[in-house]
Simulated scan of single mutants.
Amino acid sequence: MSDRARPEGFFRRRARGYLIFSLSVLVLIAVWQLLAELVRLEIILPTPLSVVRQLGQIVVRPDFLRSVGATVVRGAAGFLVAAAAGFIAGLAVGLSRGVEHALKPLLTLIQATPVMSVILLALIWFRTGGVPVFVAFLMTFPVITLNIARGIREVDPQLVEMGRVYRLPRMVRLRRIYIPSVGPYVLSAFSIALGLTWKVIIAAEVLSQPPFGVGTQLQEARVELETARVFAWTAVAVLLAGASDVLFYLILRASGGGRGRARRAASDTGGDSTAKEVAAS
């Protein structure tokens, strides 16, 4: 009875969540439609139907896939470079106070600098296609670095002491103690950075105007006072960010089983046996 009730309760909660979400979307669309009817100026606030029609028109345009593809490539490049560099820097900052003090001024400077200033400087330094990649890297690098550094410092002190007692080499401690323990912080850092990447990429494209890109299309629509087209390309940007979040979630779900079993196995074993496993590896 209880075993049967659990999945039923789970699906009931999921269905309720989807229902509330759907109702919220419908309310937002209704409010949007009402405001558009009150304004009665498409150039100020187009109706939802006008935006949908415009979205249908831009999707069939020959340059649609090239624009979206260019933005995706730039976003992926900026995110991957920031993820790799931030992961290494985060480990170094978390493990060494000296490295932390050395990098702290740079990280603080990047975080305090307005995104618009970075974009304008990048326009001077790089070609239009490289500006969004550089800006995305620079804006997400501190987020990843600081999250991973925090995860390193939150590692169980008993595991760290165990590694010292058994005189494990530094690289073995890093590979077998630190890296597995910072998993949640890495995922959190990547998730935040991924969401930030698309906003920065498109903002940089609006100003740098590369030949193809979602930001380029947004700027062209604004110049031509096609507000419905601005909304339509904004919807494309939102869908792009949502699709990347779903892909990230699916990747985590596909690879999470092995990590979860490993963490459970590590927590179930005693200190001496865990130490022997680590030392043996």
Rank of each mutant, 00 (worst) to 15 (best):
I177N: 01
F64D: 08
I144G: 04
I192G: 01
D156L: 12
R13C: 06
V214R: 03
T108S: 07
R229P: 02
E161D: 12
L146W: 01
I20M: 11
R164C: 13
G129N: 14
V206W: 09
A92V: 05
A275N: 04
A36F: 07
P48I: 11
G151R: 02
V25H: 02
R264C: 11
T145D: 11
A204R: 02
L123F: 02
V172M: 13
P132R: 05
A89I: 04
T47V: 12
E37S: 07
L49T: 11
F141M: 03
A82F: 07
A275C: 05
R261I: 04
R164A: 15
V72I: 15
G257V: 09
K199H: 02
V59Y: 07
P180R: 08
F231Q: 02
S117I: 12
S50P: 02
P169L: 13
Y18I: 09
D272E: 15
E220L: 15
R40N: 14
S2L: 15
V31I: 14
M171K: 01
E8Y: 10
A15P: 04
I124E: 08
V118W: 02
V25D: 11
Q158H: 08
S50N: 07
R229K: 11
F87K: 05
I58V: 08
V118A: 07
R74V: 08
L146N: 04
F10I: 04
P210N: 06
A15K: 09
P114E: 13
P169C: 14
A83K: 10
R12E: 15
E224M: 13
L38I: 13
I179P: 05
F21M: 15
S67E: 10
V143P: 01
Y18Q: 08
W198H: 00
D245R: 02
G9E: 14
S2P: 03
F79T: 01
R263K: 08
A275Q: 02
G271K: 08
F87S: 04
R153P: 09
G56I: 05
F79I: 08
S273P: 00
V236M: 01
V81H: 04
G75E: 11
A112C: 12
A92M: 14
R175Y: 09
V135M: 13
N147D: 14
G195S: 10
S244V: 12
G271E: 06
Y178N: 03
L106G: 00
V131E: 12
S188P: 04
R222M: 14
I44Q: 03
L109Y: 03
Q209G: 02
L106Y: 05
V133R: 04
T71P: 05
I58G: 03
I29P: 06
F231D: 00
R6G: 06
R173L: 11
G9N: 14
V68W: 01
I177S: 03
F10G: 01
E205K: 00
G17K: 07
V52W: 11
G213Q: 12
L109K: 00
G256R: 13
L196R: 04
G257L: 14
D268N: 07
G17H: 06
E220D: 10
A89S: 13
V182M: 14
A193E: 08
